[in-house]
Nucleic acid binder design. Structure first.
Lengths: 200, 200
DNA sequence: GTCTATAACGAGATAGAC
DNA sequence: GTCTATCTCGTTATAGAC
């Protein structure tokens, strides 16, 4: 659906990012090491330092790539002729896709480790959430103008509830090893926040 | 408000738990060490091993104490003569209290690190969420029976949205260093899920 | 119960050959 | 670009004295 996957073969730098991304999403930035990445790629540890001098550099590159990919998906959804409700469903599908392989959202995971992160990574994490909320706010405003949505309050608050609700639902669903739990919760959250029941 | 704080002076075991609890809530289970705890208490590292042989033992004790404290607060809220809406507000206040000092919910933090945790800790984390959802479900059912709440679907789904929504809102609000963001989101989430607007 | 001393290992990172 | 070898430090944990 969304371009969240990488090609099976790629240059070393990309393969490092792919492996590290999965490790951060499953174990956290403080839960993986250069040794883990090197072993999985079948290369030596110091080779990693050629591509990413420090672990902080690798972390920055991970967020940057992840945020860019997510932002591109948001643009793609916004450009569709769909109405607001379909766009919100597509937004939720991005999260559903991330949850595969028991992964957590990269930035949700890093938000948990926030106080331990290098400053550049911290700034990129908050920017990710801000960008998502801004995009949602625009979709919600458009939907309300069209009469497709019935918000009970300001769209920026609704946007924050959706982002936080999806991140939290992922967190809990993953610890239960139950993706269906996430999908059900996400659907109901969207319905409640956008007043789907009162429109039915 | 809720009995979430420990006395200023206590025996060594309790003081270890207090410091370790705060470190896990702020930095994660993989983000602190015995050296951190020992330094803060002004004792030697091996002294910690007398009280908690392994870090996994310490982690288990942390969850057990945290969950027991939380469960006691839930019983206290349930026993009040308040209506469902007031009980839900009191439930949210438990989370607001946890967020002080930039802390994350202990079990929300551990859920992020879930795949890296020892098995006993993993089981305790999922049990914490299950207990919270069960409690919420009962409050929501009672509120609906009284006509104080208007849920748009099954109470167990609403309970999951509330737990996940609060955990996620904490996660995002903490990375923005903005507790007000959490309180606003929590209030709106509760209102949307329990149909407060359609009752007003 | 708490200490000093130390073991045993893994972490991030560097030097320098190829 | 990738390697071997190595450094330095931090980690959990143990032994044994007090």
């Amino acid at each position: 659906m969304a371009p969240i996957d990488a090609p099976p073969t790629a240059d070393t730098r990309t393969r490092i990012l792919d492996v590290a991304e999965r490790l951060v999403q499953t174990r956290g930035f403080n839960g993986f090491s250069y040794a883990d990445v090197a072993a999985e790629l079948g290369i030596a540890k110091p080779s990693l330092h050629y591509h990413f001098a420090t672990k902080a550099d690798l972390g920055e590159a991970l967020i940057r790539r992840y945020a860019a990919r997510f932002a591109a998906a948001l643009v793609s959804i916004a450009d569709r002729p769909d109405d607001a409700r379909n766009k919100l469903d597509a937004y939720v599908a991005l999260y559903t896709d991330v949850l595969r392989d028991q992964r957590m959202c990269l930035c949700g995971m890093l938000a948990a480790e926030y106080p331990t992160l290098p400053a550049p990574m911290r700034a990129a994490v908050t920017a990710f959430f801000d960008d998502n909320e801004t995009w949602l706010e625009q979709v919600l405003d458009a939907g309300r103008a069209q009469g497709a949505l019935r918000l009970t309050g300001p769209s920026d608050e609704a946007a924050r509830i959706i982002v936080g609700g999806l991140e939290g639902a992922m967190l809990v669903a993953r610890s239960h090893g139950d993706p269906v739990r996430f999908e059900t919760a996400a659907g109901r959250l969207l319905a409640d926040v956008t007043g789907a029941a009162s429109l039915a």
